[in-house]
Design a protein around this nucleic acid. Structure first.
Lengths: 375, 375
DNA sequence: CTGTTAGCGCGTTCAG
DNA sequence: CTGAACGCGCTAACAG
């Protein structure tokens, strides 16, 4: 038998079950303990395996971690017993010992639209391939929540984070902390310009340009733009794409037709109604994203106007909903799976390398205009 | 100064940076270490705080864990230094020491429809209130993935799990393991009948009954039902509600009009086309859920028929999309937030109590028929 | 109110 | 190829 130090076994187990009868013969204590293991569903540990096999804990550990220098017989014995006893490795202990949490964090503004769930799903798949878990937190578009979530990630010693910021986020100290501590960080979609870290974005400018040019080529003369908060780079880029398309076709940009809003659902109605009631109303609206475009269509219809006959509408992102509404929405599709996969790969690239070798690539993925009936 | 045992400090830190020069004067080793802390962004530990303040680690720990018996001055000094040094508690070490992961797991079939994201969001809020993290995993409707995910949860020693099973899940051994190990488990939506654990469901029978009765009262005579896989209790209950409504109004159930399918998108078209082309086609279709209902509407429209004039359609769940499609879908709404909150509360009830006191309540929440234009 | 001591379950040298 | 010893960062029981 493997030596049982300091009456260790009985002491520990008895502690776990609360109380135990007195034994005179020490050999019975061991049996009694094993009995308790079965009764109380005690988690089997490496120590248990080692004791059963009369070998050292370190050898068991070697087998479990796939260390090469172990006698094949020993390996087999350990593996068999582990299987038989349903040994479950304790990731928490492993994490503490190896100083790696094997967990990555995802911080996103919300997952109620379809964009983020799809990206997350892709990230999760990649992470699982690498043997990593994923801690997801949504900031519900609130800066404070985002800060709190970042702290949770830090507390849990994530090995890396993938983030898309809220519309409110103007101060990035809570994210720079990751950089300072040497924890890799990757942005996607809504990125932070002042941080030099890898980013995954789509060509918002090009996407917006294409969408607006399409509207122009199909005969629209007065194209309005419902833009997002100027704090987000995507808002600015899409706006610039819009402006560039107008310019290329010699259509003067009318400031009256450009409205920047803060993604609050109630405002959309106000702005769309405003646009409709202009002396010289638009014949098309290019919205910053699909939820906005969808609400826009509803409001146009409520006003007794027709889409696309009276006003064409184009969105951005190709939400799951967009194909199903009436009329189906013309939109700029983003490669959601590719975004997730790329972000995950950029993160694992960093995790695997020393921080001195980190690069800060910005991957710009292509969008694709999906033409449906709303335009 | 707090005693530095066994050359502990230098040894540890040097290990972390790889190599270090030789020192003769021991007092310099300390300084050198502090220098390294700044350089390499070493994580501040309780040990560091204790050493700086010349008090014991346990006292620092007491302050940090909110233990009452600490001198106010000491407490203040510790807290101030922790703030100043940006001390970040190491949850992994806490988890190992306390034998609690402070993490709960959520296992769901998917989060691409809007139902699950809303429930998760509610669960997360509750969990954060209790100071718990949430590990989310989607099974993508695959039994194997579900089993794998359950194992990940076990490896990570979650303190409890909330699960909704896949359509494929017929064997529940991977979930019974949680019970055996004394880890609380709560089901919602898609529950496992053979396990005696808390569950949160909605009154599927009543919801379906109400929806079908509404169709009957609005003059529909031949109501078809697109049902789900019979492995899921929700399928059976909604089917029974459908049958009961017919019976109450003396309409014979026509087996030709009841189709059970496995949630695979491609099949919907086949079944709906089949129904439309019957000699005696239905004038209404009650679908097991909203995604099915939405696809059903698309296919009916493709066939040149009108909704609701030719065929009325009713769904179940009130997906985010349902109000936006054409025509807006009549559906049975589920209280998604309430489901999430209730499930979380049932779980924390168990986590806080000894397993001997666990109850197995089944909370049945009310649904609400939302009447829109599709019926 | 404070310090000492002994673990939590595992990985990882360092000697054989 | 194997075993002993130590440490990861923290909590908790015990003894002042």
């Amino acid at each position: 038998m493997y030596p049982v130090h300091d009456n260790y076994v009985l002491k520990i187990r008895v502690k776990k079950i609360g109380s135990a009868p007195n034994f005179r013969d020490r050999s019975h204590e061991i049996d009694f303990m094993i009995y308790l293991i079965c009764m109380k569903n005690h988690q089997i540990t490496i120590f248990d395996l080692a004791r059963e096999l009369s070998i050292s804990k370190s050898t068991v550990s070697r087998v479990l971690t796939g260390h090469p220098n172990v006698h094949p017989d020993t390996r087999k014995r350990v593996l068999d017993l582990a299987e038989k006893l349903d040994y479950q490795r304790n990731m928490i202990a492993i994490q503490l010992a190896t100083q790696q949490s094997k967990t990555i964090g995802i911080i996103i503004p919300e997952f109620l639209s379809s964009y983020f769930p799809y990206v997350i799903a892709a990230i999760q798949e990649e992470a699982h391939k690498e043997g990593y878990n994923v801690l997801i937190s949504q900031s519900t578009e609130s800066y404070e929540t985002e800060v709190r979530n970042a702290k949770v990630m830090l507390d849990n010693r994530v090995d890396g984070v993938i983030v898309s910021i809220t519309k409110e986020t103007l101060n990035f100290d809570h994210l720079k902390v990751f950089q300072k501590k040497g924890i890799p960080i990757v942005f996607f979609n809504r990125v932070c310009n002042e941080m030099m870290v890898p980013k995954v974005i789509v060509d918002d400018y090009e996407g917006a340009f294409g969408a607006v040019e399409y509207l122009i080529l199909s005969g629209r003369k007065r194209i309005a733009h419902l833009s997002g908060p100027s704090s987000l780079a995507i808002s600015v880029k899409r706006l610039n794409g819009y402006l560039a398309a107008l310019k290329k076709h010699n259509i003067p940009a009318d400031p009256e037709l450009i409205i920047s809003y803060d993604f609050s659902k109630e405002k959309i109605a106000i702005y769309v109604n405003h646009l409709i009631n202009l002396k010289n109303p638009p014949d098309a609206i290019f919205a910053i994203n699909d939820p906005t475009a969808i609400d826009t269509i509803q409001i146009i219809k409520k006003n007794g106007l027709r889409v696309p006959e009276d006003i064409a509408v184009v969105g951005f992102s190709d939400d799951y909903v967009s194909a199903l509404i009436d009329p189906p929405l013309t939109t700029v599709a983003q490669p959601v799976r590719e975004i997730g996969i790329t972000a995950a790969q950029l993160l694992f690239d960093q995790i695997k390398k020393d921080s001195s070798q980190w690069k800060t690539p910005v991957k710009v993925l292509k969008t694709k205009l999906i033409i449906r009936k709303s335009s």
